[in-house]
């Protein structure tokens, strides 16, 4: 198989655009994630959009740069996401209610005011992490292989 030569191009515009667009995308992803319970969005789409922000870094720079910025092993992120999801679901058993029973209530949080907190969000966090982890694992693995 043909070895792809490492690019040493001068992509100043792309790189500088990336450096702030990434944050916008990431914020959008976080918004989608948190808004999911009331408006379109959620863990799945939030995770995919987060991954796309990371892919943008990957395109503008390279895998090593991404690894320096975010020194995660995405397989562990996948595992962490699964763990959070399973623990959230089985946490219900501690309170003697069926598996996967969610609880929610309204709290007065500092800074946010009256807010509803929902264990479904924890589960969604698990989904989010799994999606980010899996997408990045796939892209990194394929990108690194030659």
């Amino acid at each position: 198989m043909k070895k792809q030569a490492k690019k040493h191009t001068n992509d100043v515009i792309l790189e500088s655009a990336t450096s702030f667009i990434t944050f916008i995308i990431f914020l959008f992803a976080v918004y989608l994630f948190f808004a999911g319970h009331y408006t379109p969005g959620g863990g799945f789409i939030g995770g995919l959009v987060t991954a796309s922000a990371l892919v943008l870094i990957l395109l503008a720079y390279d895998i090593k740069t991404l690894r320096r910025i975010l020194p995660f092993d995405y397989k562990w992120i996948t595992a962490l996401g699964m763990l959070i999801a399973v623990l959230t679901a089985s946490g219900a058993l501690v309170f003697n209610v069926p598996f996967f029973t969610h609880a929610h209530d309204y709290f007065n949080l500092p800074l946010f005011g009256k807010t509803s907190l929902h264990t479904a969000m924890l589960f969604d966090l698990g989904v989010y992490l799994v999606v980010v982890g899996v997408t990045m694992t796939i892209i990194q693995t394929i990108g690194e292989s030659d």
């Binding site: 379109p40 959620g42 969610h102 589960f123 989904v127 999606v131 899996v134």
Partner: peptide, 26 residues
């Protein structure tokens, strides 16, 4: 306690399916 019915079904009413879908992804 939700407004997005699709997401509530995914994570709450029928979260079991989602649990195993993310397992499939993983």
């Amino acid at each position: 306690a939700g407004g997005n019915m699709v997401n509530v079904i995914l994570v709450d009413f029928r979260g079991f399916d989602t649990l195993f879908e993310i397992a499939v992804l993983a």
